[in-house]
Nucleic acid binder design. Structure first.
Length: 801
RNA sequence: GCCCGGGUGGUGAAAUUGGUAUACACGAGAGACUUAAAAUCUCUUGGCCGCAAGGCCGUGCGGGUUCAAGUCCCGCCCCGGGCACCA
């Protein structure tokens, strides 16, 4: 039997066949155990896919196919995260509806994914820009609004003067607009904000429940949430007019607080500033306001600040301390104000030195605090009732004092900030709220969802910062759902993160328009068993999705409080020049060309063979040739198939391969699974014949990697059932036992001889063989044997002196 | 600066978690087939010394633990990713 490997013909044939027989169609329930494996869905950009994009999808496809064969009811869906700025910019430039561009891009992506032979059930395809989908994104927002988790806030935001839109921190790159590169400004804007901080503790604590997540990603999330324990302390203005609240992790150093610093945005800045200082302070604030947080924090060399002219009273020492303003203090963290303890904090020390502020040592343990800050723990001095106490005890005593005197309390603080959830853009989900002069902010009634994004003439930003929606009067003007009076719609839209925060639930029940997801289907499919995607989403997307999921759990919409059971991140595929694949470097490899020239199966095998899955790897079309050769070699074995039994050697290797491939796929170690299959194929080629059934077992484990050709081989050999509807092979434990082993003999830890022996050789005999061996004799002759070590099934080490 | 990865042949990498370092693949070289080339097949391919048998060295660098270290410990250097004046 000879098979001519025309990959184009074969791959097309099997794609058609799979579609016709519908073998990837997913049942909502059957008697098999379920397995839900999910890819992070792509943003369909205008460029189409490059060869790096599908790496994760290939891996999940292999995994899904194995699970199918192992008897699981597998859900492995795909969809589109299609709202976002590129489509909007494209619309502005070309005066076409972003929907048209999006549809076109989706079509390209879909064609390219289908080309690679993935086992998606396209009947479950979703698109975040579909009103039937975003109806539920809006619904979730409404529920959050109802529960007080969404609030309006008029805060300074990042403003791109060129795109004329507001940008969240997530859309910035080095203080510049991620899209157009312009330097951003800080401009106040009315925003909708989600109170993710209400969930900070749960988001943090439940990380410990995520046993099957990579430790590095969990650590990144912990750092992102950034919980710290300390105290909130009230400082009073010396004339008793104002209270300034600070957060500190070192309440034990309170006696050493010799000045205070407010963020330039702090609400008390103008109240506190004295007449004399007004001008200098305003000047300073103006400059600070121009800078983004990133820029402010990047100027590491020197901190700048300005004195307000005001003084506060240190609550424990009673001393008057000056109040300063400095932009290294961030408005969004803690209370936006700090107490400065220059003797025991490096930044405060630097600042105090620069502006000639007092440095008072209150913790013993360092060198000279006039030369260097001491940030460690030690014994308190110059600290009144804390003197002689060690740091931990001093903290405790201070907590008690603060509470007794009502000057503060124990407090927990998070780095995590509330989520600015509105964008002044067109191409996003409208926020389903109405502004009524009489009733205030009123939610759109559930039965009126979705609030559909209207068509507009002009996608250009308004320039005022408002969304282009604000210009569509017939859409903006509406009736208040409460009093039926004149009202206006909210014109802000949601950020791109909205749809991706819950989309995995939609796949479970993609057509439901009565509820978010049916209880029955949700309890069957949830949670996602395995989630695979880019490491760049370790903190943002994955924290947002966990937040939304916990909220949905709280309102009874889902049955588990964590959405993703196992998480694996995929390493980038870089260009052949070791740089990120991008148009800019001209190093983009198009999968269309690769598949056309070498076939989808070769590309799949190659990408999995490149190296460890989570590690970055550089593309090499040369390397791809190896994958192609392996497939051709596997095919050519069809000419060596017989009815006779395979040799012992082949049987042993085959069953080892079956075992290893299953284990390696489970662990996402595809590269070593493929190596093992190559070893088997080389051996069969060398020996020159193999039993047909044995060969088919090999084809079954190869099939998830190279589905098209494996189907073809099976058909040519007379099999009538798709390999993906047949059983995953089981290895025979008897056959993988090695009867003979190479016993390694070392002298003083150095390899001197290997001898083939029975695998179950016992210590005494092994030692005897070793010492009597001729080569070994030469090494131990005339020397004293100190001891002999025997490792079962491995080696003998003779230690001589 | 902090946190998380990583450093192994000409190249991508493997190593059962302390037990034969370099599996598998690419590339390179030689040979077979061919009028020739391609394809395919076979062999060689870490370095040094040696005609050979064989020996010595060798997993970023320097120490250490151990019968035995790519793997563990201590101290450095470099590369990648993330966070960054976090009070």
């Amino acid at each position: 039997m000879k098979i001519e490997y025309n990959h184009k013909k074969i791959e097309e044939k099997w794609k058609k066949k799979w579609e016709k027989t519908g073998i990837y169609k997913v049942d909502d329930k059957n008697d098999k155990p379920k397995y839900y494996i999910l890819d992070m869905f792509p943003y369909p950009s205008g460029e189409g896919l490059h060869v790096g994009h599908p790496k994760g999808y290939i891996a999940t496809d292999i995994f899904a196919r194995m699970k199918m064969m192992q008897g699981f009811n597998v859900l492995h869906p795909m969809g589109w995260d299609a709202f976002g700025l590129p489509a909007e910019n494209y619309a502005i430039k070309n005066k076409v509806h972003p929907k048209l561009a999006t549809d076109k891009n989706v079509a390209t992506y879909k064609r390219q994914l289908e080309m690679l032979g993935f086992s998606y059930d396209w009947e479950r395809e979703i698109n975040t820009t579909d009103p039937e989908f975003y109806k539920w994104t809006q619904w979730i927002f409404l529920k959050m609004f109802e529960r007080g988790l969404a609030y309006e806030s008029n805060e300074p935001i990042n403003w791109c003067p060129s795109c004329k839109t507001g940008l969240a921190n997530e859309d910035l790159e080095d203080g510049r607009c991620e899209r157009c590169g312009s330097e951003i400004e800080r401009v106040p804007m009315r925003q909708w904000v989600l109170k993710i901080t209400d969930y900070a503790d749960r988001l943090l604590n439940d990380i410990d429940k995520l046993e099957d997540w990579e430790e590095s990603i969990k650590e990144q999330q912990r750092n992102w949430i950034g919980r710290s324990e300390g105290a909130r302390v009230n400082f009073q203005h010396r004339d008793g007019t104002e209270n300034i609240e600070v957060f500190t992790t070192r309440p034990d150093t309170l006696f050493g607080a010799t000045y205070m610093v407010l963020a330039p945005e702090h609400k008390l800045v103008s109240t506190l500033t004295t007449k004399e200082q007004k001008k200098t302070v305003q000047e300073y604030i103006k400059n600070a306001a121009k800078k983004s947080n990133l820029e402010r924090t990047e100027l590491q060399k020197e901190k700048t600040g300005v004195f307000t002219g005001a003084y506060a009273i240190n609550p424990v020492s009673g001393k008057e301390i000056p109040i300063w303003i400095a932009d290294y203090v961030l408005a969004g963290y803690g209370t936006g104000a700090i107490m400065s303890v220059p003797a025991h904090d490096e930044r405060d020390w630097e600042f105090a030195k620069k502006y000639g502020l007092d440095i008072v040592e209150v913790v013993l343990g360092g060198e000279d605090v006039d030369q260097e800050a001491f940030c460690g723990e030690g014994t308190n001095v110059n600290s009144g009732f804390l003197n002689t106490l060690e740091t931990a005890d001093a903290k405790e005593k201070m907590f008690k004092w603060l509470e007794e005197k009502k000057r503060g309390e124990k407090a927990v603080n998070y780095k995590l900030e509330d989520w600015v959830f509105s964008r002044q853009r067109y191409w996003g989900e409208p926020i389903p709220l109405v502004h009524c002069a009489k009733c205030g902010v009123v939610p759109v009634p559930e039965k009126e969802l979705p609030v559909v994004l209207p068509d507009v003439e002009n996608y250009e930003p308004t320039g005022t910062g408002e969304s282009p929606l604000a210009a569509i009067e017939e859409w903006v003007n509406t009736k208040c759902p409460k009093c039926l009076g004149e009202a206006k719609r909210e014109t802000n839209t949601m950020p791109q993160w909205a749809g991706s925060s819950w989309y995995y639930l939609r796949y479970i029940d993609p057509k439901n328009d009565k509820e978010l997801v049916s209880k029955e289907k949700e309890s069957y499919w949830s949670p996602v068993d395995f989630y695979v995607g880019g490491a760049e989403h370790a903190t943002r997307h994955l924290i947002y999705a966990r937040f939304w999921h916990k909220f949905l759990f709280d309102i009874g919409a889902v049955a588990y409080d964590e959405p993703f059971k196992r998480l694996q991140h995929v390493g980038l595929i870089q260009g052949e020049d070791n740089r990120k694949m991008s148009k800019r470097w001209g190093n983009v490899i198009n999968p269309d060309e690769i598949v056309d020239a070498h076939g989808a199966d070769s590309m799949r095998v190659y990408e999995m063979f490149m190296g460890p899955f989570s590690q970055a790897a550089s593309w090499s079309t040369n390397g791809l040739v190896g994958a192609r050769k392996f497939i051709e070699k596997s095919i050519s074995i069809t000419e060596k198939v017989t009815e006779e039994e395979s040799s012992e050697e082949i049987k042993n290797l085959l069953h080892k391969t079956i075992k290893k491939v299953a284990e390696d796929i489970e662990d996402f170690k595809f590269n070593t699974a493929i190596s093992q299959m190559m070893i088997l194929v080389n051996k069969i080629t060398e020996i020159g014949s193999v039993n047909k059934k044995d060969y088919l077992l090999f084809i079954s484990v190869l099939a998830p990697f190279a589905p098209h050709i494996c189907e073809e081989i099976r058909e040519k050999l007379g099999e009538t059932v798709s390999v993906f509807e047949s059983d995953w092979p089981k290895y025979d434990p008897e056959l993988i036992i090695d009867k003979k082993i190479n016993l390694v003999i070392q002298v003083n830890g150095k390899l001197r001889e290997t001898i083939e022996v029975e695998a179950d050789i016992q210590e005494e005999e092994a030692k005897k063989i070793a010492t009597e061996n001729e080569t070994i004799q030469k090494w131990i002759e005339g020397k004293e044997i100190v001891k002999t070590i025997f490792v079962k099934g491995k080696l003998v080490n003779i230690v001589v002196k």
